[in-house]
């Protein structure tokens, strides 16, 4: 089957500091790819390069076989590759419903009535439709993140990128967000998830990428990567992390 996204020899440096080196992998429809690795290994930078919040300094990204940078209109590409941030980044001047409506009307040119209908559908999906009139500042972290997910879904993206969506949450709110993500995964949503939640990665991912020092060290299905990691660096990382979790 054809890939939705194909990352080829992606490089990114900030000045002399090479943060990503020769990153290659592909994302097929329905893939749930979890990216793990210690802090500073380049996971966020990788996601940010995939939707061009950072400009890659080398390599290319193909979206449906065409160069995402040169052959796709940037705003169209961005609307098809959604992103959920660690810090939610809801629009502070708009209420929950409007957060979900704005992009549809501005980018997809959907009419308001239709946009609101779609917004309510997705807010319901994440269990936040009752809060449609609330402002972001009035919500808890978990609620904000669920609204952020609904906002991304409203663009009807083909791929969703998640950058540590639960890392900024109080422990009791992590579950509600992971639950929504799990629900999306079982509905066939294609996702690329940077996470420290190893049990989530083990249960939900179709593939796990382990990153270290700006390279993908290992790329394998979760059973294999968690039970029989091949690379010494992966073994060492898992030993450290799994001692604390699972």
């Amino acid at each position: 089957m054809d890939s939705i996204l194909e990352i080829r020899h992606l490089e990114k440096s900030f000045g002399d500091h090479a943060v990503l080196r020769d990153i290659s992998f592909s994302v097929k429809k329905g893939d749930v790819i979890c990216i793990i690795g210690s802090s500073g290994s380049g996971k966020s930078t990788l996601l940010r390069c995939v939707n061009f919040l950072e400009e890659p300094t080398g390599g290319e990204i193909l979206y449906h076989g065409k160069n995402a940078e040169k052959e796709w209109k940037r705003t169209l590409y961005n609307s098809k590759v959604g992103m959920v941030f660690q810090s939610f980044n809801l629009f502070g001047n708009h209420n929950v419903l409007e957060n979900c409506v704005l992009g549809q009307m501005q980018v997809l040119k959907v009419k308001r009535v239709e946009a609101e209908e779609r917004a309510l559908t997705y807010l319901k999906r994440v269990g936040m439709d009752a809060y449609r009139a609330a402002r972001p500042a009035q919500l808890s972290g978990g609620q904000k993140q669920r609204v952020a997910i609904a906002r991304a879904l409203c663009m009807e993206p083909e791929v969703l990128l998640f950058d540590e969506p639960t890392s900024a949450l109080d422990p009791e709110m992590v579950g509600e967000v992971l639950y929504v993500m799990q629900d999306l995964a079982s509905a066939g949503m294609t996702m690329l998830i940077v996470t420290h939640e190893m049990s989530f990665a083990r249960d939900v991912a179709s593939r796990v990428l382990f990153m270290d020092g700006g390279v993908i060290v290992e790329d394998a299905p979760p059973q294999q990567l968690f039970s029989h990691p091949e690379q010494p660096r992966t073994q060492e990382f898992l030993k450290r992390v799994l001692a604390r979790q699972l």
Binding site: N78, M83, F85, N89, L90, H94, G103
Partner: peptide, 20 residues
């Protein structure tokens, strides 16, 4: 982050500035 979120759903610089 809000500007980035607007960019990430496909809004232009002008749209992100004027609406967010």
């Amino acid at each position: 982050g809000q500007k980035e979120a607007a960019t990430a759903i496909g809004m232009t610089h002008w749209q992100a500035m004027t609406h967010v």
